[in-house]
Amino acid sequence: MNPFEFIGWFGNIILSIGVIPQVIQTWRTHDVSSFNWPFLLMWAFGVLFTFIYIAQGDMARGSFQWPLWLNYLVNILATFYLVYAKYKYGKTVTPD
């Protein structure tokens, strides 16, 4: 493994695990009050569309950038869980 490949793996592993604490906290507490819809939806579709772009390019070349695949697959799953959690647990509080 050359140094740049190591850097790629290391960076993408950090990005992949960076979202996990938020997912765990949301799973445990069901608190989604700090998430706003524009952020969640832009993040979710951004990682999804970027993954599609990377996957299509890799398949066309026949050379796969596995660190990017790891990062984007983990982020797609985590982000779409957070979107689901926001939808399921996000309640609008109405004043009495």
Rank of each mutant, 00 (worst) to 15 (best):
W37F: 07
V93W: 00
W66G: 07
K86A: 04
G62T: 02
I20N: 07
G18V: 06
A85H: 08
W66V: 07
L73E: 00
W69R: 09
F10H: 03
F39N: 09
A55F: 13
N75V: 01
F49P: 00
Q65A: 15
I14Q: 05
F39H: 01
W9I: 04
K88R: 14
I54P: 00
F35V: 06
W27L: 12
Y84F: 14
F4V: 04
R28Y: 13
Q56T: 11
W27N: 03
Y84W: 15
G46H: 11
G11L: 11
N12E: 11
L73I: 15
N75W: 14
Y53G: 09
K91N: 10
P67D: 08
A60G: 08
S63M: 09
T94S: 08
W66M: 03
E5F: 03
H30I: 02
K91V: 12
F35I: 02
F64T: 05
Y72Q: 10
G90S: 07
F10W: 09
S63N: 10
Q22V: 04
P95G: 08
K88S: 11
K88C: 07
Y53L: 06
F64G: 09
Q65H: 12
L40K: 06
K91C: 08
G18F: 08
N2L: 04
K86T: 01
I14G: 02
N71F: 12
I7V: 13
F4L: 15
N36M: 03
G46D: 12
V83E: 04
M42R: 10
P3F: 11
V93H: 12
G8Y: 06
S63I: 14
T50W: 11
G57W: 07
V19H: 04
T50R: 02
T92V: 13
L15W: 10
F10S: 14
T79V: 07
I13V: 15
D96E: 13
I24Y: 09
P95M: 07
F49N: 04
G8M: 10
F35S: 07
S34A: 12
T92W: 03
G11Y: 12
Q65F: 13
L70F: 15
D58Q: 12
W69S: 03
G8W: 05
V23F: 08
N12D: 11
Y89V: 00
G18Y: 04
N71I: 01
I54N: 09
W69H: 14
F4N: 12
S33P: 00
L41T: 05
I24L: 10
S16D: 10
D58Y: 06
F45S: 11
P38A: 06
